[in-house]
Design a binder for these strands. Structure first.
Lengths: 237, 237
DNA sequence: CTTCATACGTCAATGGTGTTGGCATAAGCT
DNA sequence: AGCTTATGCCAACACCATTGACGTATGAAG
């Protein structure tokens, strides 16, 4: 049976696992998040997750159709955390900035999970809520629908793209950050000025600055561009 | 022996494989790229790659220390293709735009490969060459070193981030694009205006526009911001 | 309070994966 | 022509996701 999974709300009989633990989607996803943090983004396996839950691995297929489905659920939980307690202030630009930074931060708080999920569409409740909020801010600001969609698109893609990229370098540690770090020190920082004059000239600055995310600056540019377009009126290109 | 791999240049004895094929790093990477295109981003396995090359899977470990090393080599080849035949024109802004679009395009030409490699640092030759070129353009434009590094950082991260994101949606087809597409149609396009007024209002525009990349617009904003900062002089914030 | 259908946890098995150590042979230097 | 050793092959290991059959505890029905 390909899809024997019953929805969480329709779940009635909750039988404790052999070790006495009572399962739920929520518990499984939270456990998966913890495992990702502890064992790295490649450390989440059905077997290990089963062990961590004190349940047989195959039990998880009663809750998710497969690893992919679980992945989407993890991503939706991250967005949910970003949106928790969020309230608009009425200033669309400030609100949009806050929202972007929140989403970015929520992903970076679980980099190993972010790597797996940041570029997937889940269609689950929290994701939809975030999109509705963003579109609402832009429409409330008075943008015509064409611009709403264009700005929304750039905003959400850029946010997720940076989240994925920044998370990737944070997520490596458990598996290969040491290697990448070593590459950086061994290769870039020691290139001779004769063959690579430009890299050599700014090497110290590169080493110092490459650890910070470029997202906040990029976001500000996006918001600034949008605002100038708004004040210029709908006629402007 | 953990690292028995000899460098490509030091390779002397080239013994043909059982099926008569003579291996090389180049050939292996090109074959891997073809397999990624044909079988999707999860379709690249050491065993399959071995079969495609007419060689035993374990033979590949004479050329790469492991799957991860092969992945980095694939990424470097993509950058190499982006940089092939590139020549600066002297107009730093046009050159930078051209370079960004080339890299972005090179990744999107092999989305399945891009997904695996876009957020890794390889330190291999083509990657270093690209970085040297970008830094050279900015320094040649007259930016002070601090700004060179800041702009370089935003430029390369944004380019790779969008490449990864855009590639991800292109790469899904073989595995889960159908699912994501279905989510889009089934969930977003049919949300009732009562609960999600903003999504419902712009749904048709969303469907129409979400397939194009937001990268070109974002890149232009970055370049514009940099240029205005340059003309404003080093004293400007 | 008892009965009953079945939801859900468990078991066992399948066919995949990356990776390694030992072996033998042919390549290319001297 | 002979020797070293690089390099391709083989067999084995541990792990992976996923599935189908099975039995039992569970919650509802009477």
């Amino acid at each position: 049976m390909p899809k024997p999974v019953v929805s969480e709300s329709a779940r009635r009989r909750r039988r404790p696992t052999k070790s006495g633990m009572v399962l739920s989607e929520e518990l499984i996803v939270r456990t998966a998040l913890r495992m990702l943090r502890e064992h790295g983004s490649a450390g989440l396996t059905v077997r290990r997750l089963g062990i961590a839950l004190g349940a047989d691995p195959s039990t998880l297929y009663r809750y998710f159709t497969g690893m992919d489905d679980l992945t989407l659920a993890i991503g939706d939980m991250l967005i949910g955390r970003a949106m928790a307690d969020w309230h608009g202030t009425g200033d669309w630009r400030a609100d949009l900035r806050e929202l972007g930074l929140r989403i970015h931060a929520a992903y970076l708080e679980h980099p190993q999970a972010a790597v797996l999920t940041a570029n997937r569409i889940s269609g689950k409740s929290h994701e939809v809520a975030a999109d509705e909020a963003i579109l609402g801010l832009l429409r409330g600001a008075g943008f015509p629908d064409r611009d709403v969609v264009r700005i929304y698109h750039a905003f959400i893609d850029m946010t997720l793209a940076f989240a994925a990229l920044d998370a990737a370098s944070l997520a490596l540690p458990e598996e290969a950050r040491a290697a990448d770090e070593e590459i950086w020190q061994a290769t870039y920082a020691r290139l001779p000025a004769a063959t690579h004059p430009n890299i050599a000239a700014v090497a110290p600055l590169l080493v110092a600055g490459m650890n910070d995310s470029a997202y906040p600056a990029a976001l500000e540019m996006l918001l600034g561009s949008a605002e100038s377009h708004l004040t210029a009126g709908p006629g402007a290109a």
